[in-house]
Write a protein that binds this DNA or RNA. Structure first.
Lengths: 194, 194
DNA sequence: GGCTAATATGCCACAGTGGACGGTCAAGAG
DNA sequence: CTCTTGACCGTCCACTGTGGCATATTAGCC
């Protein structure tokens, strides 16, 4: 018992990472279990911030040690609700106030395309077509969401949804202007009847 | 013939990850050192596939064990050139032929914005302004690149550059339509005199 | 009661990130 | 000529992030 302080203050040296901080953010609304937090995060920030079960449980355990959250009584299915402590609230506020870093994009299709000279054109075209379809579905989902909930959305949620909408439309535009050499169908007017 | 085969074939069990595969892709042009590979990757695929020195050296060592690359004689500054083997070439081709997965985006600014209710509006507006500026710079860079090298670019490189262009323009558009409640300046025409 | 599926958590190996570190060499300053 | 500086080159480490496997527990259904 030397490393981790026994006196009142656990002295959190590490500045808190974005995933852990997000969990604290969701806990402002009341106690939640790891399971609930995963579901909430997936729903609310999943489109621009990925996290996994493993990560969530690991962070919750670490934050409990650090005194940022406290676990309550274990419920029905080993359900372990966590609630925010004052230290946790403060850590969240500090985190939120930091300069958010640049976005990170990892797009395997672009990687495949960048090495396209080593790949059969037909194959590349098939990948491109599949991805175009997937992006169409995503856009449709966002549009439906906006149509249903648009007006009712808090301005913050509306802004992030708008980002998704614009992003998907830009990607679709890109697909529609891809030259046939890289798997696009050009302006052939096709693409639909599938 | 149990663990790591000593006879000719090292039998690569793992399917190769995208980062390692990209290194093999670059090695088609001739032997390169880890340092060179990092620089090349940063330049060619850095905008949509991030990798770090640590990762590159780790993968090279693993791929050498797996027989996908061979290291040559150590040069001037401990420079260790790697060249592609036939197994490596085959592994790359196999990898390239797989269905590329969906893209991953992690955007801390959207995270900050999603929790915007807990943040001072001024602060959020400052973050937004800074990011808008950064994206403007990125777009300008892409546009300059297209103006200089546009015609000379291979179609694959042209396509990935076009993605970058469209992405940055979409993001900028989003910034320009952000409501003041979430840090936007709306259509106020300001933005300059900061 | 027994089956199955959803709920709920934990563990592990691997992938990915960023920084610190140490050594080598080239070129210019003194 | 030596010394310093900085670019070059590789290594190591701790932490973050991902995905799958292994558990239980419980609700619903027959």
């Amino acid at each position: 018992m030397d490393g981790q302080e026994k006196d009142g203050r656990p002295a959190p040296p590490r500045p808190l990472n974005a995933t852990a901080a997000s969990l604290l953010g969701f806990l402002h609304a009341g106690p939640l279990t790891g399971w609930d937090l995963v579901a909430t995060a997936e729903l609310v920030i999943g489109d621009f911030w990925s996290l996994t079960r493993s990560q969530v449980y690991r962070e919750l355990a670490a934050m409990e040690v650090a005194g940022l959250v406290e676990s309550g009584e274990i419920g029905p299915r080993d359900r372990r609700p966590y609630r925010l402590t004052d230290d946790g609230r403060e850590a969240f506020a500090t985190w939120l106030d930091r300069e958010p870093g640049p976005e990170q994009i990892r797009y395997p299709l672009l990687l495949t395309m960048a090495f396209g000279e080593h790949l059969a054109p037909r194959r590349l075209a098939a990948f491109v077509a599949a991805h175009r379809r997937a992006h169409g579905v995503r856009l449709a989902g966002y549009e439906a969401l906006q149509a249903e909930a648009g007006e009712a959305l808090a301005p913050y949620a509306a802004a992030t949804l708008d980002f998704g909408l614009r992003y998907e439309r830009a990607v679709l535009d890109w697909f529609d202007h891809l030259s046939p050499e890289v798997g696009g169908e050009a302006a052939g007017g096709a693409g639909g009847p599938g």
